[in-house]
Design a protein around this nucleic acid. Structure first.
Length: 334
DNA sequence: CCTCCACCGGAACGGAGGGGGA
DNA sequence: TCCCCCTCCGTTCCGGTGGAGG
């Protein structure tokens, strides 16, 4: 029933995109100077998750790659590469300069010197989830390299700017902003139809069923595609040729959970324990949380370290901190 | 209004782990 | 080989904040 599993992956970048023509054109215009061998304008992409920001950014750069031979590009996810060192390392990797730089033993300043010496063709860097970066001064570092142009992706404009230091923020005021809205049901359905056409047997699913998936996804294409994939996989497992309504119903919560599950898996043992305790309680006060943690952990970390973990958990949108000071409670986000 | 006190998060430090250079 | 220096992570110390309670 599944003819091409790749297109059911939410990170797959299709050969043609839908419903994002205006956003794509604006971004392409920002990148246009590259065609003349000049650095591009900085572009800022904002919008909630699953609205095509990453997809359009990658697509625009791929498109440029088809017409312009002489430029470099890199995609860096700041959630995974959150320190200044890690990001610069990836940046150098994108221009083949990282081979003789060894992780852990080269000072960040050396990486920066290496980058400043860069005098190759224009270099476009997509920085995804830039609001998850722990040290946004790296943006300033990158700004100072003439050949480098940046496409920055984040959820909310206001929250991003509160994290930036003034030097970066003032430069970004001139950047091109592109806001992405949630997809409507009809838009999601046509996105899903493409994926069905490319990746499933023709009669595997009905339009009514796609509408149902789209409706439940609430404008988030990642959730919608993930739901479709889960339903299709389970249908294959059951030896069916078609996706049933029951399979869709089953897949909906699974798809949501799957996206969160990936984040939880990346936590360390102790971070995971803190998360599990909050999950068990649903909602818990800091003092009780520390006490419970100390009780359950072998070689417990200090309170200060737990506060660092909590900050991280909040940052990853796994946990929500509500209230200030004494009124503070930690709650699971579901 | 003032004083506690639980809690937050910044700064500085030190050790683990790992590569470079003499 | 030994020593130095890097990053990363956890720790220690501490000042700030805002409800609770006198």
């Amino acid at each position: 029933m599944i003819t091409d599993a790749r297109v059911l992956d939410p990170t797959f970048v299709p050969a043609e995109t839908q419903h994002r023509d205006a956003e794509l054109n604006t971004l392409s215009a920002a990148l246009n100077p590259i065609t003349r061998g000049e650095p591009a304008e900085t572009a800022l992409l904002f919008g909630p998750s699953g609205v095509g920001k990453t997809c359009i950014a990658k697509f625009a750069v791929d498109q440029l790659n088809d017409t312009v031979a002489n430029f470099n590009h890199a995609y860096i996810n700041c959630w995974q590469n959150y320190s200044r060192f890690q990001t610069l390392y990836r940046v150098l990797e994108g221009i083949g300069q990282s081979l003789d730089i060894h992780r852990e033993s080269t000072p960040t300043d050396k990486l920066l010197d290496r980058l400043r010496d860069y005098d190759g063709p224009p270099y476009v860097i997509i920085l995804d989830e830039v609001d998850q970066h722990e040290d946004t001064s790296v943006l300033y570092d990158l700004y100072r390299v003439r050949e480098v142009s940046m496409v920055l992706i984040a959820n909310r404009e206001v929250e991003l700017f509160t994290q930036l230091d003034d030097r970066v923020a003032s430069r970004l005021t001139a950047a091109m902003r592109i806001h992405f809205d949630r997809y409507g049901v009809a838009e999601l359905v046509s996105i899903l139809e493409d994926r069905v056409r490319w990746g499933l047997r023709e009669d595997a699913i009905t339009t009514d069923q796609l509408e149902r998936i789209a409706d439940a996804a609430a404008g988030d294409a990642r959730v919608a595609i993930s739901t479709l994939r889960t339903a299709a996989r389970n249908a294959v497992e059951q030896g069916r040729n078609q996706i049933t309504d029951a399979l869709i119903e089953e897949a909906e919560p699974k798809a949501m959970a799957e996206i969160q599950q990936k984040t939880v898996q990346k936590l360390t043992e102790h971070q995971r324990l803190v998360y599990d305790i909050i999950n068990d309680y649903g909602e818990i006060e800091p003092g009780e949380l520390y006490a419970e943690y100390r009780d359950q952990a072998d070689n417990p970390r200090t309170e200060r370290t737990i506060r660092n973990y909590l900050r991280k958990l909040c940052h990853y949108n796994l946990v929500q901190a509500e209230g200030e000071g004494r009124r503070r409670v930690y709650r699971i986000i579901s």
